[in-house]
Amino acid sequence: MSAENQKNSNKLSAFILGLISIILTIVPLPDFLANFKPDWTLLLLIFLSINIPKEFNMGTAFILGILVDVSQGTLLGQHAFASLLVVFLTSKLHLQLRNYPLLQLTAIICLILMMYHFILFWINGVSGISSSIYSYVGPVISGTVLWPIISKLLGTLFLYSTSKEKV
C-alpha cells in the first residue's frame, strides 16, 4: 500500500472514531455510573497523537474539544483548552511514550488524565462553578482502567508507516 493511501485510510478511521467518541460522550449512563464516564474524546486524541503523529493535527483536538463543550453545556473552549494542552504534551513526547511498555504507559496516562481534570477543575473554579470531587476523580479511574483495552483495540485499526522497532 502506498504512503498516500495509508494516510487517507488512517484519516478516515480517525474521523469515524471521532464521531463515535462524541456519540459515546453524549450517551447517558445510569446514575451510579454517571460520575465514571471516561473522557472518550481525550483518550482517542492521546492515542492518535502518540501513534500516528505525522497525520495528527492540533485542529482535531480543538474541534473535538469544542464539540464536547457544546454537547455538555460547559464553558465554550474549556475542554478544547485542556485537550490542546494535553495533546501538545503527548505529541512532543510521542517518541518516548510509544516505546514504553503498556503498564508504564497506562500509569502515565493516569497522570495525564489527572492533569486534564485539574485544568477543568481550575477553569470551573475561576468561573465559580463548584461540584463534587467524584466528578473529577471518576473519569480518571475509568479512563486509566480502559486505556489498555482502548489502545489494543485502536492499535489493530491503524496502519503504521514505520514499525515501532524501526523508529
Binding site: 503523529p53 505525522k54 495528527f56 493535527n57 492540533m58 485542529g59 483536538a61 480543538f62 474539544g65 469544542i66 464553558l75 465554550l76 473552549g77 474549556q78 478544547a80 483548552f81 490542546l84 494542552l85 501538545f88 505529541s91 512532543k92 517518541l95 477553569i123 468561573s127 514505520t162 523508529v167
Partner: peptide, 26 residues
Amino acid sequence: RPRIPALNTKFIVLILVSFGLLISDQ
C-alpha cells in the same frame, strides 16, 4: 525522524483562540 509539521504555531494559535472563547463565553 518523523516530522510533525508546524505543531508549535498551530498549537499557540488554537490555545489562544480557546482561551479567548473561554473568557468571552464567561
